[in-house]
Design a binder for these strands. Structure first.
Lengths: 249, 249
DNA sequence: GCATGCAAAATTGTTAACAATCATGTCAGC
DNA sequence: GCTGACATGATTGTTAACAATTTTGCATGC
């Protein structure tokens, strides 16, 4: 099962003068990306160049080039002289990502609804069928990937590559955020919500489509534990499990 | 005079654990970026690693790392086994960049108008004063930079770093597009248009602000020569300056 | 048991060298 | 003069080695 990126990048391989063979760091990028999205590489984990170089059978320079790519996607964090770490998005960052997605996907939904054709509708439906299938099969991983790809499909249908590429990166970051802030109940897109979104898109009304998209994104965000603890008096005794011996002056 | 990126990135140096000293490829990145934006490195120009390494007094590896960063910003194009070239945005790409900017900056203008404060208004005005100054001084280069920074200031005021970073990259690409498709008359933002935009933002009405922003961006785009020649019969005679000797069968 | 200093190990940063590929120039044949 | 083959030079792709920095472990003193 390939990751979200493979679907999007497969269309861009042509930019490498028709070469179908991926270069080492591209393959490594995909494998690391999968590991991050699968949560095998957990937020905060240190990524040691030499270890990865040995694992992939290349020199450290290939790993470093891959790190630069992953850092651009904000999936890892490069700290000079200290190393590379899987990103740990802050709550602020998470909120900003969702806010940015709302801004972008609002426009995408408007465009798709306005320019809806029977062919495109069919394409979206087929995708949703695959989502339903994955759910029925209990293939949780496939369902998650297809769920993200649904958003990417809409971006592609909006016909703006600049936006599509940006959204792709936001979706990857969203996956990491979900890994960090997941609540006990399922957090990813519900496929019934995608059904509702499709209906809104099929209405042909950009405002209806945009409103449903916003609702959907807000629902994902609200299912995450993004609330900050309320500021209050710091209770060191309970933090450290100590009983105060006397009142400090 | 520093480039657009310096203003934005100066706020992000803290991510390098407080280190104020830029690393080699960061300094090289800035210098190359300036050269591209100044049109000293022209669209299509080949960037030879060894030559640049000698110029900057570093190894080729530093240059390659810089290339990766510039390529991520779509300012250069890396072709495997052939080299790096300053990007030559296509007409389609130019149109998509402006369309993406409309999508983003529509949201930014709404946010800024909605959350306008006297302090922020003052900040924007001061920036516009500097734009006017640059125009009166006839400092064309400063005027261009300040003009792009005006948009970036609004993005910053919208309070979403994800959007700010994305817009920064779109603005850089816009500069390259302007270099490619510039018409004889001035193409960059007119500072009177920025005045009108400020008035719209000060109205506090998000719809008014968004409409003015769209008008402004459309005006820039329309001042570029982005029209494709109409498809027609290819006239080889006039292309090659030859007079046909007979009618081909 | 804790703090400090130092050495060793681990890791990152960078370069030079070699391998691989592409672009250009030259020569021979037609 | 044009085309094709081949050699040469230029350039990119990649690695291993060395330099620099950080982290960890150990010994000593209090």
């Amino acid at each position: 099962m390939e990751s979200i990126v493979t679907m999007a990048r497969a269309d861009q391989t042509g930019s490498y003068k028709g070469s179908e063979k991926l270069r080492p760091e591209e393959m490594i990028y995909h494998e690391m990306l999968d590991a991050i999205l699968d949560r095998r590489l957990e937020p905060g984990m240190k990524l040691v160049e030499e270890d990865l170089a040995k694992t992939f059978g290349v020199s450290r320079a290939r790993i470093r080039a891959t790190f630069l790519q992953l850092a651009h996607d904000k999936l890892i964090n490069l700290v000079p002289n200290r190393g590379a770490f899987v990103s740990e998005p802050t709550i602020d960052e998470a909120i900003e990502v969702f806010s940015a997605r709302r801004m972008i996907e609002d426009g995408v939904a408007r465009k798709v609804a306005t320019n809806m054709t029977p062919e495109r509708a069919e394409q979206i439906k087929e995708h949703l069928d695959r989502e339903h299938d994955a759910h029925h099969r209990g293939d949780h991983r496939a369902a998650i990937i297809l769920s993200g790809e649904f958003h990417l499909l809409l971006a592609r249908l909006s016909g703006n590559l600049v936006i599509e590429e940006f959204l792709e990166r936001l979706i990857l970051r969203t996956s990491l955020i979900i890994a960090m802030y997941e609540s006990p109940q399922p957090v990813d897109c519900s496929h019934t919500e995608h059904d509702q979104l499709l209906n809104a898109l099929l209405s042909g009304d950009p405002d209806v489509a945009a409103a449903e998209m916003s609702r959907h994104l807000d629902a994902i965000r609200d299912r995450l534990q993004l609330q900050r603890p309320k500021p209050g008096k710091t209770d060191f005794a309970s933090i450290f499990g100590r009983i105060p011996t006397s009142e400090a002056s």
